[in-house]
Simulated scan of single mutants.
Amino acid sequence: MMRILLFLATNLAVVLVASITLQLLGVDGYLRGQGIDFTALLLFCFIIGMAGSIISLFMSKWLAKRSTGTVIIETPSNTTEKWLVDTVAELSREAGIKMPQVGIFPAQQSNAFATGWNKNDALVAVSAGLLNRMRPEEVRAVLAHEIGHVANGDMVTLALIQGVVNTFVMFFARAVAHLVDSFLKSRSGGEGGLGFLGYFVVVIVAEIVFGLVASAIVAWFSRFREYRADAMGARLAGTGAMVNALARLKSETELPDQMPDTLRALAITKGQTRSITERLFASHPPLDDRIRALKEAAYRQ
């Protein structure tokens, strides 16, 4: 539950910061003074909403390296690192993408992630724990899963979706505040209304409500892309290896999760959600569901 709250808080924080930026730039005051131009409002919200997502996307590799302590393998120093680099190179060729950077981060839990601003300038990293405890064919399946994220352009698509939902959260929040303000003025014969502080409070409350809905939409797409990446992993590394890798991850769900919350949606775990709220806002489907989907797909072939 704490992870879900942090996920929601992060997304709401992005929207609130953007809202404060609009306020400081005088956009809200200008639009209110003009009786609000919804076309102009949508344009302003789109620019602000997309800007944060695009900046985050371009900084994703740098942030991932810093927050996880990932060490990039420039020149392999042992047989494990050489095998890791060679395997990523092979999988990349099969997926039709440029070789991404390869790194290892010092976490004892088995985990991995992929990030980058486009499919030909990406980073694929695995944890030390994953290399130590998984069999080579399972590690290869995990790498294939992450290559699947890169080949599918998931990082770019997720950033664009986040930017779009941020746009509409800010737009509809201000539209609601404008309607409330207009309603109060009509009831008082043109006097009164929300005022500056009341308008700002209504905007913030509406953004929190709409932000929850937006977070659920983004989380739904994040779960959907995990199934696609699993399918790519099965195609590149074999269904049996992909299923075994997910089963191994499931066996480690009780270990401390050392993945930073800002990168949780990019990692291959977790997904052992229980409550309806957790399922609604989880970035990953339950591992049991992912394993079942792979087996059903193999059965249909």
Rank of each mutant, 00 (worst) to 15 (best):
I4Q: 12
L5I: 15
L6W: 15
N11K: 02
L12A: 12
L16A: 13
S19T: 12
G33A: 10
L43P: 01
L43A: 11
F46H: 08
I47K: 05
M50Y: 09
A51Q: 09
F58V: 09
K61W: 01
K61R: 15
T70E: 14
N78K: 02
E81G: 04
V85A: 10
R93P: 00
E94G: 10
I97L: 03
K98S: 11
P100Q: 08
T115D: 00
K119D: 02
N120T: 01
A122I: 02
A122Q: 00
A122Y: 01
L123I: 09
V126T: 11
G129I: 05
E137I: 11
E138M: 13
E138N: 06
A141F: 05
A144L: 09
G148L: 07
G148E: 04
V150A: 02
A151K: 12
V156A: 07
T157M: 14
L160T: 13
L160A: 14
V164L: 15
F168K: 03
F171A: 11
A175E: 01
A175K: 09
H178I: 05
V180G: 01
D181W: 06
F183P: 03
L184K: 13
R187W: 10
R187S: 15
S188Q: 15
L197I: 13
L197Q: 07
Y199D: 06
F200I: 04
F200A: 08
I204E: 02
A206V: 00
I208H: 01
V209F: 15
L212A: 10
A216F: 09
F221A: 03
S222M: 12
E226Y: 03
A229D: 05
G238C: 09
T239K: 06
G240S: 13
V243F: 03
A247C: 08
R248S: 11
K250F: 00
A267V: 00
T269P: 00
T269F: 00
T273V: 13
R274N: 09
I276V: 13
R279C: 11
L280I: 15
H284Y: 07
K295G: 02
A298D: 14
A298R: 06
A298T: 07
R300M: 07
